[in-house]
Design a protein around this nucleic acid. Structure first.
Lengths: 329, 329
DNA sequence: GTGAAAGCGCTAACAA
DNA sequence: TTGTTAGCGCTTTCAC
């Protein structure tokens, strides 16, 4: 294996000089620089990145956790983070937690072991007190999830407001029996959505009904199941906030083939405004959120912390959301 | 930062002994082992992974390239690779090439720089002659793509046969004007599909028509455009193989809202058998392929090469595919 | 069973 | 402008 010493020997210079050329340091004479570069090219030498990382104690790699990569929202989030990382010459290790607490902690071990310089959590499986101790090993930030007291940057969008808007829209369309779906109750972001939902009901003097609230709902198949549940209720909602376009798509499909008219019999509103909204019939009303931008912003914030420009401290950034009305409401 | 020396000092042993404990080597007395373990726990010591990787010249990380992560097929592929990597305690760095040749080569630089132990290419942007030189730095294998001569393991499914089956199905449904979509002409896998398409036409004495072949087609939006193209033809096909469920979904949607009856006026067949097939109206006939398994197999094959159990040599593995008939044909 | 010592490839003080 | 030297944290001979 070719090393820096080999180059130094070939060029009759010290390896320091070679290292300087490699790192674009000043104070190398033009002739030497050129000669060294020439030799490097000729014998196809490549610096060993791991040795560099070891020496500098810096990996130029960050870790990103998501529950599962095959969910369009998270795929987009990864894309945003990756795009920004690419242009900053960082690598991203994507960790799928599969909604598993242990795997999330394993991701944080990477930080402890110095295998990554920082971490972006795209979801939160563990109680914050399990996460916090890892802060001493490097910066961690929360993206697309919220915590009421964690002393780190938090980047998301206004879940409360987005949900409130959505529910008010349903109310304005004449509905007063409105259901609500969420994924996990442990998520503070999801709780904020629920608060938005309840606030809208209260503001318009509509009744709450526990039967109209559905948890553990993530994907198309869950959408299928939700329809069965709704259909089995004695008193069913006439409109439902699904929390996610996949769920909306599954729900609409089952409702339609069971003879429901969407939106007349059941209005459905999604979340995320993915392309799937435009291909199902009827098309899905949804909340548009800037996911790519969310990922990019998260990465840039992490880099700030990494470079020490900004110390790690609580800061809540909320990106704007936008209601897109289509046929399903 | 705590190091192995610190532990050694605290325990009055050499760092060799600590290292032995850390690596579960034999020949450490029970008492010492227990004492060392105890101290390690107490002061929360973690070995520095980069130092280890440096010393062992092994990163336990592999790189995986895909064109773009937010395409359901590739998201699933990543999931398969990641699942298997997780259980083998490897990390996966996912590289999105965005269909860009330079980025694909950057990924291979990781191998050259020893930042990853091996590479799985989930697509192929560059000419093989650009890729081949990197083989001397570590194992590379091809997954979901094909090459006629590359001397590496190739894992995919039988594109020819799958497409042939699909076209024959359309013919049996009474169609004789059948269109074909592909993504990129550089892809040998796509060429095999085209061969399957043409063979089926020939076997049933159906005419070829260049106007019915559409390239550069990847996602839902492309499906939208394809419909416009078909609709503008004087002599349009009555059935179309889209090569991918996203395209099929987009195409079906536009056709339907333009008053076409799918499948009567235009039969559409997808590929990949994603959940989206079940939520659009009409539901989409598709080719089911074991994507997760594809990713898992690819990882396991790479590990085999890495561990030297198997030397890197040409080997073509083709997983089975299955035609799933639904309403769109 | 255990430890001393070398060294993986590189960068960065410091000296010249 | 250049080189000498030390050392990052760890594993692995080799000798005891």
């Amino acid at each position: 294996m070719t090393t820096i010493d080999e180059i130094a020997r070939l060029c009759n210079v010290s390896k320091t000089t070679v290292s300087r050329v490699l790192n674009n340091h000043p104070y190398v004479s033009k002739e030497k620089r050129e000669m060294i570069l020439k030799v490097i090219n000729e014998i196809d030498y490549t610096p060993n990145s791991i040795a560099r990382q070891f020496r500098k104690n810096e990996t130029r790699t960050i870790a990103l956790s998501v529950p599962s990569i095959d969910h369009p929202f998270f795929a987009q989030l990864i894309k945003g983070v990756s795009l920004q990382a690419l242009s900053n010459k960082y690598k991203v290790v994507v960790f799928q937690t599969f909604y598993n607490q242990t795997i999330e902690l394993e991701l944080l071990e990477l930080l402890k072991h110095k295998e990554v310089d920082g971490v972006i959590l795209g979801a939160l499986e563990n109680n914050w007190c399990k996460i916090e101790p890892f802060l001493k090993y490097g910066p961690i930030l929360l993206c697309n999830e919220y915590h009421h007291s964690a002393n780190i940057p938090i980047i998301g969008y206004n879940e409360f407001e987005a949900t409130y808007k959505a529910i008010v829209h349903l109310i304005e369309m004449g509905h007063n029996k409105i259901g609500f779906c969420y994924d996990t109750p442990y998520s503070e972001a999801q709780c904020q959505r629920k608060d938005g939902y309840l606030k809208a009901l209260d503001d318009y003097n509509l009744p709450h009904n526990k039967d109209w609230i559905f948890g553990g709902v993530f994907n198309i198949e869950d959408g299928f199941h939700i329809f069965e549940q709704i259909n089995n209720l004695k008193d069913s909602p006439t409109a439902i906030f699904t929390g996610n376009d996949q769920v909306a798509a599954g729900l609409i499909k089952r409702a339609t083939i069971s003879g429901f008219n969407v939106p007349k019999d059941l209005a459905v509103i999604g979340f995320d405004n993915q392309l799937i909204c435009q291909v199902v019939t009827p098309t899905i009303t949804s909340i548009d959120i800037p996911i790519i931008e969310l990922g990019q912003k998260a990465f840039l914030k992490l880099i700030d912390c990494l470079l020490g420009n900004v110390s790690l401290r609580r800061e809540v950034i909320r990106l704007p959301t936008n209601l897109i009305v289509r046929e399903s409401t």
